[in-house]
Simulated scan of single mutants.
Amino acid sequence: MRYYIITGEPSGDMHAANLVSELKSLDDNSIIRAWGGKRLVSEGVEISKDIKDISFMGLWSVIINIGVIKSNIEYCKKDLLAFKADALILVDYPGFNLKIAEFAKKNGIKVFYYISPKVWAWNKSRIYKIKKYVDYLLVIFPFEVEFYKDHGVEVTYVGNPLLDEIKKNNISFSYKESKPVIALLPGSRKQEVDKILPLMLSVVDDFPEYNFVIAGNKNFDKDYYTKFIRNDNVSLVYDQTYGLLKNSKYALVTSGTATLEAALFKVPQVVCYKTNWLTYIIGKLLIKINYLSLVNILLNHLVVKELIQLELTKENLRLEIDSMIKNQEDIISDYNKIINLLDKKGASKNAAKFILCN
């Protein structure tokens, strides 16, 4: 079969690459073209567009690049038809991918959506487009099955592909720790890092028995992070987030997928989030969920403390780190429940088998 895959960020590139590995093992005649990055390249996939050229982060970046985005959409449509795909596989990246799903559907190309847009959190209007233009929706969280069923959409739960990546155990960590490590994962958006990282670092002197290690994002150079650091026992590593989590005792994590990754590595955490007030108010109006972190959403109760906006202060963070340390066994017990929920013995393989059978 001829597969055309579209992803738009590094996490999607990772999951798409693991999916491609399984597709190739099951389909000797597979021919694959994709929008992706270095992980898909490592699987021998022909790349149509590199994600570094199509990833626009934040509303302002989208606005000033709107012409480029429209041009990319038109290029993708032409490239998809020229490739003569049997199947289109969309991986997350909903703003772009739902537009291509509509085009593919109208042109008789079978549409698979792997890793659903988070419509259960916000922008439920996308459900209509998914229902109309997506032939098969493969989801990675068990609660999404019931959510979509309530909205008249049949989905298939394949398990969570983060577990596939972690189980490969292809993890490096160059930092040599002399004390137990508290990992700092301040996120990838500058406006969030600017507000969150200084608060994370404000508690360093209160916990001298630990080393604090920042998971650096390649979007920012070393000088950017260094300007925040005022303590001796703070270090910085790049492209080693999994290695850092594997070797950490605790973590302070900006909300997002990283909260789930910390849970899968069984690292007790405090979730931190702070942004500018306009973004926060808009988010409060749009996001209709009880919790911000995936860890708490999955079990529908407070597993890890969330310090959001005004609650994220030095004093509150210090208190919650103490509480986390005290209650770490309960946290890890809940993490084990999450792992059992998400582990379907190979999400990537399950997804590949489903695609081949449909």
Rank of each mutant, 00 (worst) to 15 (best):
T257F: 07
G8W: 07
N107S: 11
F83K: 02
V41G: 00
V237R: 06
L138M: 12
Y335T: 01
I321Q: 03
K195Q: 13
Y157W: 03
A262F: 04
L356A: 10
V193E: 02
E146R: 13
K176S: 12
S333N: 11
I297N: 01
A262G: 11
S323D: 13
K222N: 12
I287A: 03
L80I: 14
I325N: 04
T7S: 14
L244V: 05
A16H: 09
K70C: 15
V267N: 00
G216T: 12
G95W: 00
F56D: 01
S116A: 15
N340V: 13
I171D: 00
N296T: 11
Y4Q: 10
Y291V: 09
V119H: 01
I229R: 05
S333H: 08
P142V: 06
K284Q: 14
V155G: 06
G58R: 07
S293A: 10
Y210Q: 00
N276V: 08
L307T: 09
I331P: 00
L26K: 09
K218I: 15
N160M: 03
V68N: 13
V139Q: 02
L236I: 15
E261A: 08
G67W: 15
E192D: 13
L163P: 02
V213A: 02
E43L: 04
Y225I: 07
L40R: 06
I66M: 13
L294M: 15
L244Y: 01
I89L: 05
I166R: 01
A101D: 04
L341Q: 11
W35F: 15
V45P: 00
W60E: 15
I115S: 02
